[in-house]
Design a protein around this nucleic acid. Structure first.
Lengths: 245, 245
DNA sequence: TACACAATATGTACTTACAACACATTAGAA
DNA sequence: TTCTAATGTGTTGTAAGTACATATTGTGTA
């Protein structure tokens, strides 16, 4: 008896006997990463040309099957590393998608993560494979159910930037308040009042004034800030509003 | 060639050839449900005695392997239906857990859902199987990684009750403000000021005054309320605060 | 029947967050 | 020098959050 079946037998299942046990392993599991970046005042996502005939001409998210010897986070980091050359980036699980017909070649359940990287800081080797950055708001159609996955991850990102200091993973180390506000606007899809925005961001107490100013802008330069170092943990979230709303 | 392998071959995987293809299906997928209920002023969770030798004496969440012909929500509803006899209950996906050693019998990735039911309304047949309700805050240890799953789902529930009208799935159709407040306190683990609570809940505009009063309390009876019918969708969330925080 | 009790119901004052809006300041370019 | 397009800092009115007080109403009991 193959080990897989042996394992299946030990698993508690109410009506296990009705179904061939090996069937339970006839489902593959993958991880898909929505890799967000920010450039030219637009939120972008890293996509790859789909190599499936069914989706020819369409782009898809970066993903891969999970290997038997790696856990979910390991698989996600592996994908990021393989595709971008970067590691230690911000990564967050969002949702599992398990529709019966989401993959044309068979049953694949996927677990979606979103990731945030500073496009300008890390130069990824985009040319030698078919990776490219696409403005999130211009994406009409993707392979598989990846449009839905993208929207779900964008929704989660929009929630998180309001409460947690995650947005800074999309920016260079030093940034001006204008850049930060433009990034918020790109993510949330709204216009924000500059004066109110500054007050709100100051209240959050996330920023460190590094006593430097911009030097490459064609107008009065603004002050530069950093994220406070103690908030820099790539993962590990903590709610920074003290009260129960 | 078995269909499973055939499918594996069609799936894009960077280093697929290094690993025996069938290995990819050597991972089972399950769903685990954290079923919350509210009774005797305590938040409770429905547990079952573990039937695994490794966890003898411990309780575990209700879960089962996903069948090849059902999607994730279908599997979750099936488990709820099989175990409680109820259907159409509130259900929400929370997180996927995929640690390598989380199941002693083999590699099992599980997708956790939480569910909310009104204990008093539906009388589930608890006696003929080993199901029982346990106060959430008294649970010390569970089988597998189910303690972690429980805590994760509780955390999600705590977030959600502040912004979405989900809490009412734990209460009978008609309820008093006192009952509602006690439930919030049980979920959030804090004491709330009665007068401020009433103002806050009125602002949310979730409640319908049904012009009835309690009739079984040993003191002055309070007014009874219902959740506004248009908010009753079991799933499908909508943010009810209009502003960008 | 009257009274104590244990809740409900409602209100006030203070403080803090939010939204709309105005004006002075500063570097660069013409 | 002046114009321009940003930065930096207010002000005001409104809404929401917090702490705290008092009157009201059914129930149970002496």
């Amino acid at each position: 008896m193959p080990p897989a079946m042996e394992k299946a037998l030990q698993l508690k299942t109410a009506e296990l006997e009705k179904i061939s046990h090996i069937d339970y392993f006839n489902i593959a599991i993958s991880v898909d990463c929505v890799i967000f970046g920010y450039d030219e005042k637009e939120l972008k996502v890293l996509l790859i040309k789909s190599d499936l005939e069914e989706f020819s001409g369409l782009y898809s998210l970066l993903g891969d099957l999970i290997r038997p010897d790696e856990d979910l986070e390991t698989a996600s980091y592996r994908i990021l590393k393989e595709r971008t050359g970067m590691d230690d980036m911000y990564l967050e699980q969002v949702h599992a998608f398990g529709g019966l017909d989401r993959h044309p070649s068979g049953r694949v359940i996927t677990i979606a993560y979103y990731s945030l990287i500073d496009i300008k800081h890390q130069k990824l080797q985009l040319s030698h494979n078919e990776l490219s950055w696409h403005p999130v708001h211009e994406i009409k159609k993707l392979a598989f159910d990846h449009k839905l996955i993208l929207e779900t991850c964008l929704g989660r990102l929009q929630q998180q930037v309001l409460d947690y200091p995650v947005i800074f993973n999309l920016l260079p180390e030093k940034f001006s308040l204008r850049e930060l506000q433009e990034l918020y606007q790109a993510i949330l899809g709204v216009e924000l009042d500059r004066r109110n925005f500054r007050k709100k961001i100051v209240i959050k107490d996330w920023l460190l004034d590094i006593k430097e100013i911009e030097n490459d802008v064609p107008h009065r330069p603004g002050k530069l800030y950093k994220l406070k170092p103690e908030l820099k943990k790539k993962n590990g979230k903590k709610k920074f509003s003290a009260t129960v709303r």
